[in-house]
Amino acid sequence: MRPEDHWDKAQRLENTRLGKFDPDDDCELLIWSCIHGGAQLLNVILHRASVTEENFDMIHTSVPELGRPMPDTLKPVFEALARIESLGPRFVRGAEKWNSEIASRCLADYATVKTAAAASLEGRPAAKHAS
């Protein structure tokens, strides 16, 4: 899918999250929205950096396998999204007790990925904004 389409899909997921979900009452769908919105943003970055072609979309940070070494400059983005993904088994699929700090960290990690994706769409190196 084209980077612009990935961006638009991430924005749709974010709009739903911001408009409908409470970070605590709706924590499962908040996490899920960030996991899949984040994956869309990762594809923006990978396509724009020519790491992947538009016919090769990542579903998660490790699915499918990238098939080549991940550029070091993109590690902060992968790590941020991987931290978001790690919440799925614990709080969406699992029954671990939730607290608001987890939501704050999840949204901060999402912001890291989104900032990098926005930069790459604008033609700036993603890594500079992925701290």
Binding site: L13, T16, W32, H36
Partner: peptide, 8 residues
């Protein structure tokens, strides 16, 4: 919100 509706 069809994406999240399907996911939910």
């Amino acid at each position: 919100d069809y994406e999240m509706f399907v996911e939910a």
